[in-house]
Computed example of a mutant assay.
Amino acid sequence: MTSLIRPVKIGAEKTKVPKTKTVTKHHEFQMNKTYGQHLLKNPLIIDAIVEKSQLKSTDIVLEIGPGTGNLTMKLLESCKKVIAVEIDPRMAAELQKRVAASPFAGHIEIILGNFLEVELPYFDVCVANVPYQISSPLVFKLLSHRPTFRSAVLMFQKEFALRLAANPGDNLYCRLSVNTQLLSKVTHLMKVGKNNFLPPPKVESAVVRIQPFNPPPPINFVEWDGLIRLCFSRKNKTLSGIFRVKSVIEMLHQNYKTFCALENKMETDEMTEEKMKDLVIRVLEENESLESRSSKMEINDFLKLLNKFHEVGIHFK
């Protein structure tokens, strides 16, 4: 069930106000480890994140996990409205109280609930110190949101951030890199040390900018991810080695039978597993991909390969 509880909307029209100084507050309540709570306390880091967000005065900004509002207060200085999604009622109450006592009381909406479960309203930019345990589903929920937002400036665990931005040939280049970069441009912005948080996490952090492609590529993402999942099961192995495995051929053969049934085609009985294997190898040969390794392939290489497989009726879902 979605835990969306009474979005809080405070105030009315926006007025010109002097900029306020970010103040890090210490609170009596304990951080909740279940939610991965680490409050960003360094005003210089907060200022840098807001600057790199390139906000406009007309922007509606989505913030995920605002905590007690250190970043929120700086965002409010630069945009029209902040929509803050917070799962912890204590944090939401603290944020509401803090904003209500400021000149920005009319420009925030607080949604109490789990970000992965709530329905997101329209927003132009997303800025967040992300709860690290939901990093991957959070990224793909954002990228599936419509209408497409302009950009997201997000802080993740350092290794996760580097995986998002990794290029072919990098040690951290992986399925996450390829899937994210199919749908968006990812730029690494800066590293953030653990001592900039209260309490300090056990890992270093980094900030990236994600800019969704608009319009998104005209591709069936489930099909795409099926191919990418298979290719990166052993990313340093040749595609020839990956696609000759018996369990892979069995899976593709079953998919082919399903495809033929759905398309009312009669080729099902003619296609044996041995013929499927020959067909797969032929596609790889014609695409000059037999000796290719996923760890060094670019987005366009995977797109071309997927199209070649589709041309002969081979599918991955």
Rank of each mutant, 00 (worst) to 15 (best):
V248C: 04
E250A: 12
L39S: 13
S295E: 13
S78Q: 10
L172K: 09
I64T: 11
P147R: 00
I10Y: 14
Q133T: 14
P7E: 10
G193I: 02
I64R: 02
P147M: 00
K56S: 14
Y35I: 06
A261H: 11
E273Q: 13
S294I: 01
V192F: 00
M1P: 09
K41F: 06
Q157E: 15
G169N: 06
S53A: 09
P121F: 11
L143S: 10
A92W: 00
E159M: 00
E267L: 01
T34L: 12
K257R: 10
H310A: 03
T24M: 08
F140M: 05
N214V: 04
L305P: 05
R146A: 12
A166D: 05
K19M: 14
V99F: 03
R229K: 15
L138P: 06
I83C: 03
T72M: 00
A165L: 09
K304H: 12
A84R: 01
K141N: 13
N214S: 15
E63G: 07
V186C: 09
P103L: 04
V118N: 07
F160M: 08
T148M: 01
K97P: 05
K158L: 09
T22M: 11
A152N: 15
P217A: 04
M297K: 02
T258H: 04
I111T: 06
L95M: 03
H27W: 13
H26S: 10
G106F: 03
L290Y: 09
G313V: 06
I45N: 01
L230Q: 08
M155H: 07
E288L: 08
E223L: 03
